[in-house]
Design a protein around this nucleic acid. Sequence first.
DNA 1: TCTGGGGTCCTAGGACCC
DNA 2: TCTGGGGTCCTAGGACCC
Length: 423
Amino acid sequence: MSKEKYALVDCNNFYVSCERVFNPKLAGKPVVVLSNNDGCVVARSNEAKALGVSMGVPYFKVAHLEKEKGLIACSSNYPLYGEMSNRVMTLLGQYAPRQEVYSIDECFLLVGGMPEFESTAREIKAVVQQSLGLPICVGLAPTKTLAKLCNAVAKSTQSLGGVFDYDSVSEAKQTRILRAIKVRDVWGVGRKLAERFRAMGIETALDLRESDAERMGKEFSVVTKRTITELRGTPCIGMENVGEARKHIVSSRSFGRAVYTLEELEEAVTAYATKACEKLRRDQSIAGEVEVSVRTSAYAEDGFAEADAIVLPAPTDDTMVIVKHALQALKKAYKPGYAYQKAAVTLSRVSPREGRQMSLFAATEENDRSEKMMKALDATNARFGRGTIFLASQGIDQSWRMKAEHKSPSYLCDWNEIPRVRC
DNA sequence: TCTGGGGTCCTAGGACCC
DNA sequence: TCTGGGGTCCTAGGACCC
């Protein structure tokens, strides 16, 4: 039996790198990409990191660097990043028998039994750079947890050329590497756990590896025990099945300005529920419950947050049915007199569309009609652009929509915004 | 003035059953 | 009214991830 081996491939500063592909003027400059509403920094170029811009910082706190240091901010352009992600993932998937797309910018490849994968990884890196213009790094190790750490090592150590294989160095060297990594930077260790670990004198990845796995498992949870085992080189987190349907689907957005009236919240909830239903149908799933939540700013002194969930009469993927119940839930959650800043629609009790339980009371004819209607809706919106057909209750003006003041064009997703080349 | 969005997994505790 | 133990299922909430 060949030894297990995982590769973690991660695109460097992914959103910034995507912007740079289409706007070469951004090369070599400090660039950040902002979250929706131009709220926080969610991606930074190396030059921006060097200026001390930290991840997740509210943009207004670093906006002064625009003038002082030439910092450039881009609003996020998720359709563009999504399309670039599809392309890079498709390419990477060709290099291994199994791939797990872990997030928009990283995937695991199962490369056990493939000799000399380190040189293959260097080849992959060159191909992705050449064909898509995206820089990547690769970490190789016998477990996913170590592969994540090795990826970080590859990223931070220039001389490695973007690829690091844990097995290529001596045990002594491995130990030195783990000693240099803070426990907080280990996959699966968040802020809370790191605090509790520190109180026990566990400061580094090495300290965690050397701790008593059994005892830690009892004191914390099986998750911690698994992390420790993985740090020791024994895999216990396998590849996830790809393409499995999500169990919860959320659509939520902060508004571009404070919203007070039920009517405006109804528009937003209709739009969010519509979007959640599109995702639901794309997964070939149906939902049994819809929840609506609304809240004022999390930083408001006199804040308010409320949610209400409604179990649907029968599980469905019908936008009109789900919107209707979402609006009922909203009415129960809404209280007048607050400055609302955000609304969310969550679909749960999600199950596969195949073999669904039809409502006893709904005539099959009605089910048929709804199915045809939803198919036509999705097909039209896919062909002519999202939002070609929509429910009137989502409003036309939508003045509550979010801000995006520095957005790049939808180069890959809209014929009207395709890049032009002059010669 | 200005602080994102979308997921997963695990655990504890309550309801219910025999 | 008193009295037992054990199992399952579901949900809410916490912690984590990118």
